[in-house]
Design a protein around this nucleic acid. Structure first.
Lengths: 153, 153
DNA sequence: TATTGTTATACTCTATAACTATA
DNA sequence: TATAGTTATAGAGTATAACAATA
């Protein structure tokens, strides 16, 4: 029962929870739900990606993803395009308006929630990034290695 | 736009997401939803707490909490008791069965998801705990200091 | 036959606000 | 008047499974 990693996980959860509480207010203020913001944030600064990839990155299952994307499409924030190489597949990307929201809402969320880091030094950041990167590595290694990933465009 | 903390937050989110993916399978297998598991995990190893406190710790708003607790009560996993000192307030705690689930599901989730830490050294844990504790501190400091907290029982 | 995305169902969570009963 | 919890409502996310089109 004395699994030491539990303390880290609890800290991890508390940090995430705290940060979400901090940023959540600004997310909601933008009229986006958490899941929708997740999608926008994931698509931001990318050329777009398939439903499959989007689902994997955001932990949203395909059935749900249809609905979330649908609402974002209605809002004119994302657009879909049939993939050329696999006609079953859609390519989802931000529209101009979606990019505007990303560039608008994101920095606002960022600047507000980033205030708490005012006194962090470069060394503090380095240490944090290092330990989190290692943590991410072991966690991701725990997932099945099956990520076939076909080259396409 | 080059806010350095973003990298840390992204790593944080990826770690949390990865861990939830890892543990989520076992949580669902127990028949609990994520929110329900949150409650059980929060109540575990405590004498119980009020709705208010529970809501603060889990980020679940009071209106929602009523429903979540209701379902857990129906399952016989938690019980409520009027607070002596404040009759508006309920005291929520795990039942015997709830403790059994906590002691049963939790370790299973823990042992399965903990496998990825097999090669972590005490130093690795120390470093992780240290950086996360610091992170938690600055994040929590970002919340309003108003946590009056009345002593009671 | 396997995979991508859709549809349908049933349930759960969420935000919000009006309400009650206590304080 | 303010606070703890309830109720009601509308919207959104979730798991799951059956389905179409494509690979």
């Amino acid at each position: 029962m004395g699994a030491r990693f539990l303390k880290s996980i609890r800290l991890l959860a508390e940090c995430m929870q705290g940060y979400e509480r901090l940023s959540g207010e600004y997310v909601r203020r933008s009229g986006l739900t958490h899941a929708q913001f997740d999608i926008i944030a994931t698509l931001g600064n990318t050329p777009g990606m398939s439903y499959k990839e989007l689902g994997e990155k955001t932990l949203i299952t395909k059935g749900t993803l249809t609905g979330v994307i649908e609402r974002l499409e209605q809002k004119g924030l994302v657009e879909r395009q049939r993939s050329d190489c696999d006609k079953r597949s859609f390519f989802v990307r931000l529209t101009k308006e979606g990019e505007r929201v990303f560039c608008d809402v994101f920095p606002e969320v960022i600047s507000q929630s980033g205030k708490v880091f005012a006194h962090y030094t470069p060394d503090d950041f380095s240490a944090l990034e290092k330990t989190l990167s290692e943590l991410k590595n072991v966690i991701m290694a725990g997932h099945l290695p099956g990520t076939p990933e076909h080259d396409c465009d």
